[in-house]
Design a protein around this nucleic acid. Structure first.
Lengths: 140, 140
DNA sequence: ATAGATGCAAACTATTTGCATCCTC
DNA sequence: GAGGATGCAAATAGTTTGCATCTAT
């Protein structure tokens, strides 16, 4: 993602454009896997940024729908850019922690079924689905 | 679940039978929704039990496959008995926190697909799927 | 008798909050 | 200039660890 489009994204979300936010979103948008706050703190351009500022910006981005917070059954939260083409899910290696994205899974039908089957719920807004297993490396 | 079968379960798992464990599993096996440590601390028969002991026993039970730890996008962990008839999933109300179980969802096919589609993984061992929405009460 | 279970105190980790200062618009 | 962004210090929440004591087998 180009810096200019990140600036536009921030402005459209009603957020101020700051060096930290640019660096953060620049890195996140290029990342090929979900990142933890710990991961982000080690990025060169973010090395001197206070951890609290990262947390606050990530929170803000999540609320604005720019990024997504993931629950990967680890202690810490993981973040990745919000993918516009609907949901995608993850496979996490129980041995080494490797994370692979899983696109194009036909969950829409499942979601509709859940809404129908539920007795107490009337609206499904979001869903998460994660797979846990062994990557080819660790499965030996 | 009867006390006697809980005792058997513990013995078969190679665990000692203690009053705390009996009370814990007795309550968990009767619960109709996943419970947090906070929830468990308020159970009459567990009121005087140290929180640490609950954590340790829950850990042990998870490792032995007696109960399951759930990640419901909340701060704390939730626990429920391991259901033998395969996985089931949850719907969580984003407003009031109500949790409903969702049985009999045909995820097996989806899991097989994931295994096939994945480039880096060879084995899927477990999966989790949660739905977030509004319960009928909160959806007004 | 011995290994494992429990309680108490203290540590740890991720995350949040308060407040003063700084920067973007 | 004003309101939001940042840094620093400190609090919080959930969970874990160390160690001494107790209990089930």
């Amino acid at each position: 993602m180009h810096i200019s489009s990140i600036k536009t994204l921030l402005r459209e979300s009603g957020l101020k454009v700051t060096p930290i936010r640019l660096a953060l979103l620049n890195y996140l948008s290029k990342a090929k896997k979900p990142l933890s706050v710990e991961d982000l703190m080690q990025v060169k351009s973010l090395l001197e940024v206070d951890k609290v500022t990262l947390y606050r910006n990530l929170d803000t981005f999540v609320k604005k729908g720019i990024i997504q917070r993931l629950d990967l059954h680890r202690r810490e939260a993981y973040f990745e850019m919000q993918h516009k083409h609907g949901h995608h899910h993850h496979i996490i290696c129980m041995e080494c922690g490797l994370i692979e994205d899983m696109h194009s899974c036909s969950m829409d039908i499942a979601v509709k079924n859940v809404e129908k089957k539920s007795k107490k719920f009337s609206k499904i807004i979001d869903h998460s689905m994660e797979f846990y297993g062994l990557c080819k490396k660790c499965d030996k």
